[in-house]
Write a protein that binds this DNA or RNA. Structure first.
Lengths: 183, 183
DNA sequence: GTCTATAATTTGATAGAC
DNA sequence: GTCTATCAAATTATAGAC
């Protein structure tokens, strides 16, 4: 995001923006080159193919997302869930963006295999993080299966929530949708 | 779907399949022409532009979806919700497909405006249908706002559920995810 | 590392014969 | 209605000079 970022980072930043708003199949090297003031051939120096660029962006996104969440805090259920929801909410508030892997999950049938693999990893890791939060909910005892069900439900609600919000009234819709989880 | 369908129907059927698996931006007139054994120029006779085809497919999808649901039955809450969930589940079981408008909701920033309008209609009409079901839940009294919140939550859960299911274990994941709604 | 130049293919779309 | 023929533009990608 910084102005002094190296070219490789600028390329990934621009690509991530396009992938999260338009989708992997709806942006070109030309779009990115124009945005950051280089030529398309220069992109190929940093990322040989579009699939390479897409996979690199997806890996970076997953790393950053989990880093932002921090380790699951077993003793602060409500705060952690609130934080998790806020991570998705900020996708929307920062320019109508989807969660990158929500977008890729929709496009999965038309993606290069290298991308489907790293995209799936996002979901696997998010569910493991959520499981730990739900297993430790204060005063309640959850089985692993119950925790996993809650994890899947929250993840799906948020991914779908971004889709529905984008087609309707945006943040207002998203907030209405998740309000029950924040109690 | 029938073998004796006219060309226009065959084109829409093929287009719907691609739009629900690969997305609007990841299929071409060539794909469709090859599938049904015609030339791309013939498609333009029935649908002048790709946007026209996309909008027609989306309108037909919404009509069919609501027709399949039937009028909201105010006296059979559980049965109606079960039926609603089954409508989404069959998307997946019939060849890894998304809900068409869930896919378009993700791609919305890269769609022709004519398509975003008809796609939004799907969500508006679905929410109105669900509102009536939730407002009439036996033995409970819901405000319009509470009903709308439930409607939004179920719709988002199902759209997101299809996305997550496609990236993980498919139907198993989807069923796990919605099981709580079926009690 | 970035550029120019260019290749090879695909894309949505049109004109006009049949 | 469907075809052949064709178009202009866009796309990913490579070779090679600087």
């Amino acid at each position: 995001m910084s102005n002094t970022a190296d070219t490789s980072t600028k390329i990934m930043d621009a690509a991530e923006g396009y992938m999260r708003t338009r989708g992997y199949n709806a942006f070109s090297f030309r779009d990115i080159a124009a945005d950051i003031g280089i030529k398309t051939a220069s992109i190929h120096y940093h990322f040989p193919s579009k699939a390479d660029l897409g996979a690199a962006v997806t890996e970076r996104y997953t790393e950053r997302f989990l880093e932002h969440l921090g380790p699951p805090d077993a003793y602060n259920h409500t705060k952690q869930i609130t934080r998790y929801i806020a991570a998705f909410r900020s996708s929307y508030s920062a320019g109508d963006q989807m969660c990158l892997c929500g977008m890729l999950g929709a496009e999965v049938s038309s993606l290069p295999e290298s991308m489907t693999i790293v995209s799936k990893e996002f979901f696997v890791k998010n569910l493991l993080w959520l499981d730990k939060i739900y297993l430790s909910k204060e005063g309640e005892s959850f089985s692993i299966e119950q925790a996993r069900q809650n994890s899947l439900r929250l993840l799906a609600l948020l991914e779908g929530g971004l889709i529905v919000a984008r087609s309707l009234d945006g943040l207002e819709t998203f907030d209405h949708l998740v309000s029950q989880e924040l109690i």
